[in-house]
Simulated scan of single mutants.
Amino acid sequence: MSEIRIDPITGRHVIFSMERDNRPSDLWNVKAEECFHCKFEYMADCPFCLGNEDMTPPEIDRISNGENWDIRIVPNKYPALDQMEASKVKRIKTSSLFQKYSGIGTHEVIVESSKHNHNYFNMDKEHFTRFISAVLKRYKEIIKNDSIDFVSFFKNYQKLAGASLFHPHSQMIGLGSVPDFIRYEIEGSKKYYSNSKTCPYCDILRIELKKRERLVYENNEFAVISPFAPKYKYELWVLPKAHRPYFQEEQNETELSDALYRAFHMLYKTLGDFPFNLYLHGLPKSMKDSNPYYHYHFEINPRISGNAGFEIGTGIYINSIFPEEATKTLIENYSLNIERKG
């Protein structure tokens, strides 16, 4: 029996059909693929490995660990946007129907470790915390730029999630405009606020922390939840418990890194070394009026099942596990692992 849920923020529809996992398939199996790169801490042809610094543009920042660096931030050698001054941005109006403007902004790479085979599942918590601190520090610097309105932090892990290089890295793109999906979230939040006079994210947290049906993990400052209508199997959100629309105002980076670290390790105990997309949604600088009803958050999207014609053609996703069941599985598998270690 299928069930259709509606995302309370965006209004996006998600179909839940448990029978989908029973479909026969003779296509490539991700889990069966051998990871060649996992064997090596250093690769001579990798631009992000320790000792190959001349293969990247000059670094913007680094975090050192003794004589060597731990984390580097460099300009993307193949940026999605042109690095230009705001004064040079020109909106070109060719007609009332067709309009375009120059693509300018910033595009940077965070090299998350000097070790080629590091990932979120095998790096220690101290290193992960330093990485999150570096992300927050750089985010604050980029968003100060007068020509930047929104900063997109994201990570693609493994080829199925869009990664082109194996070495652990994530990216930041600074935009002078507001992305469409951020607008949809803000519009959905504003609509909810106009009726209830409360932030929908705060209300979601209040319900999840009370009922605990979809609460995966919490610490003093953050909660990890399975959203009510997730696009992907085992999708997780990480949100500050206090109402905070701007990521650049976050001061609890240790608690944030703890929540993200625990979320990834709980997923790992259930899914193994899985492909995923991690991204941050925060309030753009120009949308100050959205303060009362928007709430910054991270989303983790496991890419263990691909989007096909129906999802791409309609925008409606199909999920084969309810978030309540996913929550139970994540908690039980993680607890079982702790018991075994004990």
Rank of each mutant, 00 (worst) to 15 (best):
A223W: 02
T314G: 09
D7S: 09
I186H: 05
M266F: 10
A223I: 11
S320F: 10
G11S: 14
A263E: 04
S2E: 08
H13N: 13
R23P: 15
F298C: 05
T254F: 13
H116W: 09
E255G: 15
R72K: 12
R138F: 05
I312H: 14
H295C: 11
E250D: 05
K115N: 08
S164C: 05
N68G: 00
R72F: 01
E41S: 10
K197F: 10
T329R: 14
R62L: 00
K328I: 09
I204E: 01
H297S: 10
G272V: 10
K88N: 11
N319G: 04
N145C: 04
S64D: 07
F121H: 13
V109C: 09
S320P: 08
N220E: 15
W237G: 06
I304V: 15
L165H: 13
I331V: 15
G272T: 12
A32Q: 12
M43Q: 13
K197A: 06
Y42G: 01
L215P: 03
E53G: 10
E126P: 00
I104F: 06
A161Q: 09
D7L: 04
E332I: 04
L278V: 10
A308L: 11
T94R: 02
E249D: 15
F153W: 14
A80R: 07
H243L: 08
F154A: 06
E53Y: 10
S170C: 13
S164I: 04
I207C: 03
A326H: 10
F222V: 07
T10L: 03
L271H: 12
W237E: 12
T254V: 11
E213G: 02
T327I: 06
Y268G: 03
S257Q: 11
I338K: 15
S286C: 10
P179E: 00
L280W: 14
S164V: 08
Q251Y: 08
E59D: 00
H116G: 07
H243C: 10
I6P: 01
L236K: 15
N319S: 07
S133I: 00
E253W: 14
D61Q: 05
R262P: 01
K341T: 11
I6Q: 15
S320C: 13
G174Y: 08
F153R: 00
P58G: 02
I300W: 05
F40L: 05
D82F: 08
F150D: 02
G174D: 08
K115F: 08
K190V: 06
F276A: 12
Q158G: 02
K191D: 02
S257D: 01
M287F: 03
K211T: 07
K341L: 11
